[in-house]
């Protein structure tokens, strides 16, 4: 099975204090700590496990500047067989559909049975996988938490529909899936693993190499426009409750009856 996994380098929200940039339409990106988008690790792990089961090859692709190379190497250290790095300033500021068009061009240069993305990334949009599938007219399932091969050329997949109910579906390859965390336990990548792949050659692609018109991509072509960024206001602050357990309980019930929607 030939598998393409789309990965992204994102600011690490656990490690960074996020501040607004001047102009208020982006975050301040100087001095940010970046890491692999968390969902993507699960997607790569799922791809590696499938390959180990049925054979084939896992290719990871990212769109980003020079520094995004780090993300691809980490995934190679996890066990991906090859990487592709789309690096072109003209693509900066692309919206979801712009990125999906780039990934479509990447996918068309290969012959993939399965394309995986993380369920979402730092901006929480979670739409590139579905868009890519639509552009390529492939079947799609989002938020997949279970994958197994189902005979030749098909997959059996699972996802939670509501309230813990698990839906099981069958779909033919080729297809596109977005992967939810919890599907597996992504393997640990140590510094030694990353060193081992330090010299692996990763092909660099730009819009021209992908046969894309740069003018139709990037910030200028994005239809999703940023009007304003702001930091949410914190509330009046917490009220501390003190006392013995039964006193605390009585206080809480009184407060919650007034404010918390309990009767």
């Amino acid at each position: 099975m030939e598998i393409l996994v789309c990965v992204k380098q994102v600011p690490d929200t656990a490690e960074n204090d996020i501040e607004l940039a001047k102009g208020g339409r982006d975050i301040e990106r100087e001095d940010l700590v970046y890491s692999v988008n968390e969902w993507d690790n699960y997607a790569v792990e799922a791809a590696i496990q499938l390959r180990d089961q049925v054979g084939g090859r896992v290719t990871v692709v990212t769109i980003g500047g020079e520094e995004a190379d780090e993300v691809l190497r980490r995934q190679l250290a996890m066990g991906a067989d090859g990487g592709l790095h789309v690096n072109d300033e003209a693509l900066e500021g692309s919206d979801g559909l712009g990125l999906a068009r780039v990934l479509e061009a990447v996918a068309q240069q290969g012959s993939y049975d399965l394309i995986l993305t993380g369920a979402q990334a730092d901006d929480g949009a979670g739409q590139v996988g579905g868009m890519l599938a639509a552009l390529m007219d492939l079947p799609f399932a989002a938020l997949v938490n279970h994958i197994e091969p189902s005979g030749a050329g098909a997959l059996r997949i699972g996802r939670e529909v509501a309230g813990g109910d698990q839906e099981i579906s069958e779909m033919d390859l080729p297809c596109v899936l977005s992967i939810q965390t919890g599907i597996n336990q992504p393997r640990y990548v140590g510094i030694r693993g990353i060193r081992k792949v330090a010299s692996v050659e990763i092909p660099q692609l730009d819009a021209a190499a992908l046969g894309l018109d740069a003018a139709s991509l990037g910030a200028g072509a994005a239809r999703l426009r940023r009007l304003d960024y702001f930091v949410p206001q914190s509330g009046p602050g917490a009220r501390m409750l003190a006392g013995k357990p039964d006193q605390l309980a009585a206080q809480l019930v009184e407060i919650l009856k007034a404010k918390g929607g309990i009767r």
Binding site: T13, D17, L224, R226, L227, D228, Y229, F230, V231
Partner: peptide
Amino acid sequence: IYAGKVYAQVA
């Protein structure tokens, strides 16, 4: 966005 640390207004 960014785990709720920032809110974006978009159109």
